[in-house]
């Protein structure tokens, strides 16, 4: 019933890996969501109240997307790596904002 690919994947799902994934999903997802809300607020060329509101609205979708990614990734390491890349990009956009 269960495919070989799935079983191979489940092997990487023992407790430490699973725990690390849960942390990545709950906290990492929140962090990416927060960064999206910040990046929108800073970068969007709109009145600031509009930019802030759009950022907040998108942040929850980003959070959900991160959770799906974290549990779809082949290994916990890949899950984390996939979080770091957009996280760094978003953080850079924030750091390089026009003052």
């Amino acid at each position: 019933m269960v495919s070989a690919a799935f079983r191979a994947r489940m092997r990487g799902w023992r407790w430490p890996g699973l725990l690390s994934r849960i942390v990545a999903a709950v906290l990492g997802g929140y962090a990416i969501g927060a960064l999206v809300s910040v990046a929108c607020a800073v970068l969007l060329p709109l009145p600031r109240s509009e930019a802030v509101v759009i950022g907040m609205m998108l942040s929850f979708l980003a959070y959900a997307g991160v959770v799906l990614w974290v549990f779809a990734a082949r290994t916990a390491w890949r899950a984390w790596a996939g979080l770091l890349a957009p996280g760094l990009l978003l953080a850079a956009s924030w750091a390089g904002r026009p003052v």
Binding site: G33, A34, L35, S37, V38, C40, A41, V42, R48, A51, V52, G55, M56, S59, F60, W94
Partner: peptide
């Protein structure tokens, strides 16, 4: 998610 608002 207050962070964008906090910053702006």
């Amino acid at each position: 998610m207050p962070w964008g608002m906090q910053l702006a």
